[in-house]
Design a protein around this nucleic acid. Structure first.
Lengths: 152, 152
DNA sequence: CAGCGATAGTTCCTCGAAGGAACCCTCTGA
DNA sequence: TCAGAGGGTTCCTTCGAGGAACTATCGCTG
């Protein structure tokens, strides 16, 4: 996709960006998430070039974020579905939404609102600590080498 | 940067990807976050082309995610710092890390561990509801049009 | 059974962005 | 006065994005 190979870097940000490191992929995932699952629909909705859409879908299927599912044999028809991996990527999308809403939405306000089914309220996502449950921001973290760190 | 203009779309994912929708920007932010703040350092650390680094830094400064700060008059020397906007983008990076750790780290395990300063434990970020505090995944959400939705 | 439309791509062409190497300028310290 | 670091800029090549046109299969309708 891009010239540099980010997938081999010892960094989970780089490896994630290797999968969705251009703007169309997250938008494709968003659309699949809301039920726009077919090639033609996606192309119309996004206004993406058919060529690029073909490439991205192939890439996302290879990355096991989407799967291509045949829903009709005659004629052969496909739809794209989120895998578990893909569904968890959508959590990342909700965090993107939050940042975009906060810093880029401007006067008009957020284009979309999210209602948390569990509590019934309009809400946004907040980053919390998996251990203690308290808010967890990048400024609250200390970084340490992990088992997969490059040999030093 | 890319040919299509994502900044004008009525979607906070698109607008966010307009800012960091290629792999280098998140890596630059990560480095600035951990204290690698100068052009030469960044270039060496990332292995990025000087030309592309120049472009990305300019772009991130324009997007008000970084600011260029002169720390020496004679000779003129600069460092790049995170703005508030940028610091909040780092929260997004921690979520990317989490996904990458989970799905792309493989046998070796995560390259980096994060210790939550508040509780002292190695932890990862978990998406929670800003209202009720319970876990909030993309599958727990209902989507509604917001004030900034395109006229329909 | 001819023609049309929907689905799902593929091919071709052009232009801009990525990568890399080389070059430039300023200032400092030996 | 010359090497070296900091911080870029310029130039060249190649690859990917975007867009338009083309292909192929099947179902429906007149």
């Amino acid at each position: 996709m891009q010239r540099t190979d980010f997938s081999q870097m010892a960094c989970s940000i780089a490896r994630t960006m290797d999968v969705i490191g251009e703007p169309w992929s997250p938008l494709i995932l968003r659309d699949v998430y809301v039920g726009i699952t077919r090639f033609e629909e996606l192309q119309r909705e996004l206004g993406i070039s058919r060529k690029v859409l073909t490439e991205r879908l192939k890439w996302l299927v290879e990355a096991e974020v989407l799967e291509r599912h045949r829903y009709s044999e005659h004629p052969p028809r496909h739809e794209y579905r989120l895998t578990d991996r893909g569904r968890e990527l959508c959590d990342l999308l909700t965090v993107m939404v939050r940042w975009g809403d906060r810093w880029l939405a401007g006067e008009a306000g957020p284009p979309v609102l999210y209602r948390h089914r569990a509590c019934g309220e309009i809400a946004h996502v907040a980053p919390c600590c998996s251990v203690c449950g308290e808010p967890m921001h990048s400024t609250d973290l200390d970084v340490e080498p992990g088992p997969g760190a490059a040999a030093g």
